[in-house]
Design a binder for these strands. Structure first.
Length: 235
DNA sequence: GCGACAG
DNA sequence: ATCTTGTCGC
């Protein structure tokens, strides 16, 4: 498997302040498309994206790994390296992660299909997490898979793989708590762009045959860490 | 005002 | 996210 590595380019007009970032969220939020028209779970292509940082050296590395939805074999992968465009601010994670992710996706030699993000989509204080943001910017179908409940509340789902419970903001179901392996801590799924919550959960289960986290995220996580180390070594 | 807070 | 050793278990 050959991996193309490109340099991150920060899009024109990328916000610098938190106020600007919130204004961008407000402007883009209405462009989220609800519902899914993509291939059923276990078919088509599924792509994982993830980002690693060395803030001390102002270095960021992103990876995009495309898997065959049926076999979960790696079909293609790409990485992007550059400087950190935005600090970590809860609720504004998209502005820190997306420039590198967009560059990695652009470098892929094939369409990514459904994109599985690390973090949230609709389940966001302002209902526009990084998965939603990525979907609107690219037009791709996206889902968010987070490892903790962020600011939301929930009851624990049943112990069996596939069990779910609603992820709640007050009484509003903004996502779903999904048990991906028997007796293992669940993940937190929310809709990004052009997907529905039921489909998002089914898609996540389809790429989670053996571990708590999707194969897409595991592959992307490993690759972006490697890319970061590579960049550190070269300089 | 203070704490909580995806990655 | 990242800082970090050994250790228990499949």
């Amino acid at each position: 498997m050959t991996t193309v590595t490109v340099t991150v380019r920060i899009p024109d007009g990328w916000p610098v302040t938190e106020e600007e970032a919130r204004a961008v969220q407000d402007a883009l939020r209405a462009r989220v498309e609800a519902g899914g028209s993509g291939p059923p779970p276990g078919t088509g292509r599924v792509t994982g994206v993830d980002v690693a940082y060395d803030d001390g050296r102002d270095l960021v590395a992103a990876a995009a790994v495309v898997l065959d939805g049926a076999t979960l074999d790696v079909v293609a992968e790409a990485t992007a390296v550059g400087s950190v465009p935005f600090p970590y601010v809860p609720g504004l994670l998209a502005f820190r992660e997306l420039p590198a992710v967009l560059a990695a996706l652009d470098a892929l030699p094939c369409p990514p299909g459904l994109v599985v993000c690390d973090g949230y989509g609709l389940a966001h204080p302002r209902r526009f997490g990084l998965a939603s943001h990525l979907g609107v910017l690219t037009g791709l179908a996206t889902v968010g898979v987070a490892k903790n409940p962020f600011t939301f509340h929930h009851d624990d789902p049943g112990a069996a793989r596939g069990s779910t419970s609603p992820l709640l903001a007050g009484t509003e179901e903004v996502g779903r708590v999904l048990r991906t392996q028997d007796g293992v801590k669940p993940v937190f799924v929310s809709v990004g762009h052009r997907t529905g919550l039921d489909d998002a959960c089914a898609q996540v289960l389809a790429v989670t045959p053996r571990h708590r986290l999707p194969e897409t995220t595991r592959r992307a996580d490993a690759l972006c860490r490697r890319a970061l180390q590579e960049a550190l070594t070269r300089h």
